[in-house]
Each structure stands twice: as structure tokens, then as C-alpha cells.
């Protein structure tokens, strides 16, 4: 066990800015259908890949503020591992109780094999 309190992708590189887009992860490091927890500017976000599309949401279940990182996801939906709230990763919309408020989405952009995120 490392001395970090969570496991996620750490970008040791200094953030490369593309206007307001910040480098998050290499395209090659995220398989189709996969998701990754990434630290972007002191914030933990989840990045999903579906085919050539990338989506980014806050790692926050709006029901109780807990993390979604360990939740299952299928298609465009991610499920909170604790109480089963589901969110649309494209819009952040809460799809079922016990959550009813959307979680924050962030815009993704892919340039030359790198995924950039614009924090909302």
C-alpha cells in the first residue's frame, strides 16, 4: 500500500494549458468502455471512454457527496456503488433515486492522443 489515500492517475507533468483545457490523461491509457479517476487542478474527476468519445464528470454522487469511482458503468450510465443512484455521464443528470440533482460535467477535448478537460 502506498502512502497516498486514494488511487488515481496522477499527472506529474505540469498541467499543459490549451486555452482553458487542461491535460487529464493520454488517450492510449484509457481503453474503450473504461473509466479513470484523474486529478485535475486539485479536483478529482472521472473520465469515461466510449469508442472515440470521452466524457468527464465530477467524482461526486449528489445524493451524499460520496465517490462514484468504484461504481459500475454501462453505456452512458454510471451507478453509485453505495445506494444505487445513476447518472448520465453525458449530461450529469441524475437518473434515479436517491439522487435527483445532476453531478457536474466537464467538457473533454482530444488532441494528438491527449485528453484535455475544461473544468466547469
Amino acid at each position: 500500500m502506498g502512502n497516498s489515500c486514494g488511487s488515481y492517475q496522477r499527472n506529474n507533468q505540469r498541467p499543459k494549458r490549451m486555452s482553458e483545457f487542461i491535460f487529464a490523461i493520454n488517450e492510449a491509457d484509457l481503453a474503450d468502455g473504461g473509466k479513470s479517476l484523474v486529478e485535475v487542478e486539485d479536483r478529482l474527476v472521472l473520465i469515461f471512454r466510449i469508442g472515440e468519445q470521452f466524457f468527464c464528470i465530477d467524482d461526486v454522487c449528489t445524493h451524499d457527496g460520496g465517490t462514484l469511482a468504484d461504481g459500475n458503468h454501462e453505456g452512458y450510465e454510471v451507478e453509485c456503488p453505495r445506494h444505487g443512484a445513476r447518472f448520465d455521464i453525458r449530461t450529469g443528470a441524475a437518473l434515479c433515486m436517491p439522487a435527483f440533482k445532476p453531478t457536474q460535467v466537464h467538457e473533454c477535448q482530444v488532441t494528438e492522443g491527449k485528453v484535455f478537460v475544461k473544468l466547469s
Binding site: G2, S4, C5, G6, Y8, G65
Partner: peptide
Amino acid sequence: SGRDEEWMRTDIRMFNLD
């Protein structure tokens, strides 16, 4: 971790002791 009642409101995943 966030699974502990006492820590569920306090996210320390970005704390790195190293």
C-alpha cells in the same frame, strides 16, 4: 476512507504522504 462514517464528508484522496 470515505466508507468510514467519520471520514465520509472529508475527502483526503488527494493527500499524499510521500
